[in-house]
Design a protein around this nucleic acid. Structure first.
Lengths: 332, 332
DNA sequence: TACAGTTACGGACCGCGTAAGCATA
DNA sequence: TATGCTTACGCGGTCCGTAACTGTA
C-alpha cells in the first residue's frame, strides 16, 4: 500500500470509475493506474471494483470502506504538506471556496481582491452552489471553506461555523410599482398580492420566506426563481413580479429600481463561514478569514480549530460594514 | 513523502530520538532510517529534529505538528489493513488491552481464554497500568481497547465508553480480626480505626474511597498501597491493616480471610470498556467485546462506532455474572 | 575507544511510460 | 471499428543493506 496507490484509487472513484479519465487528472498514464490498482487489490486480498468486460462496473462494499479511510489518510498527507508550505512561506497554492452566487458576487470581491494583492500566486476557485451543495463540497474536501446563510442558528452539518455578518432582505420593485408608492410601511400582505421573483432556495418548504408567509396565513405565488441575484433583478425589471433578495445584492447601478427594506417582515439572516477542524489551513486561507472577520483574533481562530472551542463572535450587520467594495475592503 | 518515511519518523520519535533503536523496531537498518528521514526533511523543506553532534537532540515544533498528523495518517493505513484482514478472514494478529491488574487477573481470564480458543493465532498483550495510563495508551494508539473503572459516570476522556459490569468493594481482614467478629453491620467508622491496605489509586485526592471517608468526616490512614490485588491480600495476611479492594479479586483460595461486603459503605463502581471511534476493529476484537457483553448486539456496536450513537447498555452486577472462571466464560 | 549518525556504493526492486493485446458495444 | 482495461517490456529511479566515514564523550 502506497500513497500513490491510494491517490489513484480516489481518482478512479471520483472519475466515475473511468481509469482513463482518472489518469489524466493525476497526470499519469492509464496502464499505470490500472496496474497500481491491481497491486493494491492484490495486497489487500480482495477487489475494490467489480469489473465488466469493458470497464469498471461498481465499487464493492469493501472498496467503499477502504475509500472512506483513504480519503482521511490523503487529507492528512495534505495537512502535512500544508504545514510544510506554511513554514516555508511558500505563498502559492489554491483556495476553493464553496458559496452562493450572491456572496461571491457582492460580498467577497473586495476581500478576494485584497487577498490577491497580498498573495498574488494563490489561485482562488469559487464553486457556486446552494447552501446544501456548499456544505457537501466542504465535507467532500473539494472546498477548504464554505460560506452560507441561515435565518437562524449555525448549520449543524459543519463542525466549525463562524458568523460573518448579519443581513436582511429587501423587496425590489420598479419605481412605477404600486408598492413603491405606498405611504405606509410595507406588510407581508402587500407583497403577497404579487407574484414573487426570488432565490431558488425559496422552493424548499423550509425556506424562511415561505415560512414567514405561511405563519402569517398568507399564500405566496412564485413567478421566477433563480440562484443568481442578477437574474432576479432582470426579471423584476421585466415585470415578472416583486423581487425578494439579499440587501447585499443592491448596488448603485440598481437606482432604476426601488429596494424597500424588509427587516421587519422577514427574519434576519446570518452569513456563516464554515471550516473543517481536521484540515490545516494555509496561511493565505487564514489571511482571508481574518480579513473577513477583523474582530476575530488569529489566535482565537487557531484555538477554535485545534481545541474545539466554540467561537464567540458577535457579527456586525451588513449595512455597518458595507461600502461600495464590500467586506474586507481595507488597506493592507 | 511516503508511508515508509512517516513510519520511520514515528519510530524515531517513539524511540526517544534514537535512530538505531528505531531501526531495530521497524526491522530496518540505521542508515536506512537516517536517509529516509533526511529525504522527508528535504521534501518538506525544514528539519523535523534538531541535531546534536552525536545524536538527535529534540523534535522541532514543526516536527511535532507533522508527527501528530502522521499518526492519524498511519492509523488510517492500519484501518485499511484491518478492513482487509477482516474481509480475508485472516484471523491472526495482535490485540493490546490496557487495563488494571485486577481486571486482567480476575475478570478477563475466562473471556480471553475463550477468545484464544476461537482465535488461536491472536497474540493478546495486556498492558497493566492505572486508569489514567490505560486511557493514555488508548489515546496514543498503543492499545485497541482499555478497561477501567469509575465510581460514577463514564470517563470523559475516551470517545466511546461501554459499561461492562458494576461491582462493589469488600473489606478484607483475617478471621481473627475484630472486624470479622462484629455482630452488626460494618460502618466506615469501624474501618477508619485501622490502617488501610488498598489500591494505589487511593493516593489520589479524587479517589472515591478517600472521598467517602472525608464525606463522613473521618480520617483515614493508609498502610500500604499497591496496584496489585494479590499484593493487597499479602499485606492483609501480614497484618499491615484492613484491606479494601474489588470484590472480583476474592477467590476461593482466600478462604483464610474474611471478605465483608462494603456495598453500603462505598459507592458502587462501574467497569467500562473504552474504544476509539476512529479505529477499525478486527473481527477478533469485536468477538471479545461481544463475549464480554453478550447482551450487546454486534450491530448496535457497529452503529455506535460509525454513527456516533450513544450506547444504551444496562450493565449487570459482577456477582450476577461471576463464576469461578469470571465473565465471558460460556461455551463457544 | 566506543557509540551514534551521516555519507558512499552497488544490487535489487519497482513504478512508469510505450506499445501491443483483448474484449465488448 | 472505437473504446477502455489489461498485459508485456524496457528504462530509470529509488530503496535497502553493507561498509566506510565523521564527530563527540
Amino acid at each position: 500500500m502506497t500513497l500513490t496507490q491510494l491517490r489513484y484509487l480516489l481518482a478512479i472513484a471520483d472519475s466515475g470509475l473511468n481509469i482513463t479519465l482518472a489518469a489524466e487528472k493525476v497526470h499519469a498514464t492509464q496502464p499505470g493506474l490500472s496496474k497500481q490498482l491491481k497491486q493494491l487489490e492484490d495486497e489487500l486480498g480482495f477487489i475494490l471494483f467489480t469489473r465488466g468486460a469493458r470497464s469498471l462496473e461498481s465499487i464493492t462494499p469493501a472498496g467503499e470502506k477502504v475509500i472512506e479511510h483513504a480519503r482521511i489518510l490523503l487529507a492528512e498527507a495534505n495537512n502535512i504538506r500544508a504545514i510544510a508550505a506554511n513554514l516555508r512561506r511558500d505563498n502559492q497554492g489554491e483556495l476553493h471556496i464553496a458559496t452562493t452566487h450572491t456572496q461571491a458576487r457582492y460580498a467577497l470581491p473586495a476581500a478576494l481582491a485584497a487577498l490577491n494583492r497580498q498573495f498574488p500566486n494563490v489561485a482562488v476557485h469559487l464553486t457556486p452552489g446552494g447552501d446544501g451543495e456548499s456544505i457537501a463540497s466542504l465535507a467532500r474536501g473539494d472546498a477548504e471553506i464554505a460560506i452560507i446563510s441561515t435565518a437562524g442558528n449555525a448549520p449543524s452539518a459543519a463542525d466549525l461555523a463562524i458568523p460573518l455578518y448579519r443581513w436582511d432582505r429587501v423587496v425590489l420593485v420598479s419605481k412605477q410599482h404600486e408598492l413603491a408608492k405606498l405611504d405606509r410601511p410595507l406588510t407581508l400582505a402587500d407583497i403577497a398580492k404579487f407574484p414573487l421573483v426570488s432565490y431558488e432556495s425559496t422552493r424548499e418548504p423550509e425556506s424562511s420566506l415561505r415560512q414567514a408567509f405561511s405563519k402569517a396565513g398568507l399564500e405566496m405565488s412564485i413567478a421566477v426563481t433563480a440562484r443568481d441575484a442578477d437574474l432576479i433583478k432582470t426579471y423584476v425589471r421585466a415585470g415578472f413580479g416583486v423581487g425578494v433578495l439579499a440587501e447585499m445584492a443592491i448596488t448603485p447601478e440598481d437606482s432604476d429600481l426601488v429596494a424597500i427594506p424588509a427587516d421587519n417582515l422577514l427574519p434576519r439572516c446570518t452569513a456563516w463561514l464554515l471550516l473543517r477542524r481536521d484540515r490545516v489551513l494555509r496561511d493565505y486561507t487564514q489571511a482571508l478569514i481574518t480579513r473577513l472577520l477583523p474582530q476575530l483574533h488569529a489566535l482565537e481562530l487557531q484555538r477554535a480549530i485545534s481545541d474545539g472551542e466554540t467561537l464567540k463572535v458577535n457579527p456586525l450587520h451588513w449595512r455597518d460594514i458595507a461600502r461600495p467594495g464590500a467586506i474586507g475592503d481595507f488597506e493592507i
